[in-house]
Structure formats: C-alpha cells, structure tokens
Amino acid sequence: MKRQEVAVTATSTADADTLYRLLCDRAAVVVWSPMSECELERPGERDPEGVGSVRRQRLGRTVGYDTIIELRPGRLFRYSHEGLPVNGYVGTVTLTPVDGGCRVDWSSSFTPRYPLTGWLLRRGVRRFLTDCVTGLASYAETATP
C-alpha cells in the first residue's frame, strides 16, 4: 500500500521557544489540542518527558500512544504513533522563526493497514493536525513564557 503524507501549516506571533515548550508540556496538550487526556505512560531515557517517553492520549473513545523520537529545542518535535489502523506513523513539527513570530509546519506520514482506506485516513489525520497546529499557534500567543 502507498505511503500517505499529510502536511499543515500555521503562523503564530509567539516565538519558537514558546511553541516548543507547549509541544513538550503534556499538561498543556489538552488545552491547545482536541485531546481530552495526555498522560505519561513511560518516562524517557534521560528526561521523563524527553526522547523515548510515551504519552497516552485520548480523543473521545480513541486512545493512542505517542513515542517521542527526536527533540531539537526551539526547532523540532518528532514522534511515532500507535493507535490508528496504520503502520509506521511518524509526525514531525518543525518551528521556523519568521518576522513577527514563527511558522509551525506539522506533517505526518503513514501506511494504511487496510486497502482502500488511505484517502479516509488522510482526511481524518489532516483534520486532526489542522486542529492541533491552529490550536497550538493560537494558544502560544496568549501563553506566558
């Protein structure tokens, strides 16, 4: 089956460090994203919230697990996801300073587990990522550093 790609972008007046801090703060995730829960399932290798940590997240009745796979302070947040009917899901949030703020590029790629479901999964992931990126960009503008 064909690998699917989804990418969304938003711009915020907040700086990259503020956006990065909110991405790494699992307690804040439920404020700026559609998630109703975000709990630490397993601590990271060096930092409890760092690389290797696993977050258990809930959206309605759906539960998923994000494993943090790469962090570059103020620049990059990369994770893998388990919980959707896909294989090899990888999400990447890239923060790029621009005049007056920061551009947030959130992308994901995955391979559907079942034939003919790529378009539906792509549509759902795009909607979810759009809610996340716009929520993050907007909330960061009001967040206290």
Rank of each mutant, 00 (worst) to 15 (best):
G52P: 10
W106V: 03
V63F: 15
P97E: 01
R72Q: 15
L76D: 00
R103G: 05
V51L: 04
L121N: 04
P48Q: 10
V51H: 05
L71C: 06
F128M: 11
L59Y: 15
F110P: 14
R113P: 12
R42T: 13
E70K: 13
S53M: 13
D47Y: 11
V31F: 02
T62S: 10
G74L: 04
T94P: 06
C38H: 10
G124Q: 11
G100N: 06
S108I: 01
C38S: 15
Q57D: 08
L136W: 01
R61N: 15
R55A: 14
D17H: 11
D25K: 02
R58T: 09
R103Y: 02
G52V: 03
S33N: 04
G50N: 08
D15R: 11
T94R: 10
T96P: 09
L71P: 04
G135H: 01
V29Q: 10
L95I: 01
V29Y: 09
R56H: 11
T67K: 11
V63N: 11
G118A: 11
E70Q: 12
I69N: 06
P34G: 05
S109T: 08
G60E: 09
R127T: 07
V98W: 00
Q57C: 14
C132T: 06
E41H: 15
R122E: 09
R75P: 15
L120Y: 10
V133H: 01
T134M: 01
G52W: 02
G64F: 14
R26F: 15
G52K: 09
L59I: 14
P85W: 03
R78A: 09
V98E: 04
V30L: 05
D99C: 07
P73M: 08
E37D: 15
P34M: 04
N87F: 13
V133A: 02
R122C: 04
I68V: 15
G74K: 11
S53D: 10
H81T: 12
L23T: 01
E41V: 07
G83R: 02
A16E: 01
N87P: 08
Y65Q: 10
V93F: 01
P112H: 04
V104L: 00
T134D: 03
G50R: 05
I68M: 11
D25E: 03
D66I: 08
W119P: 13
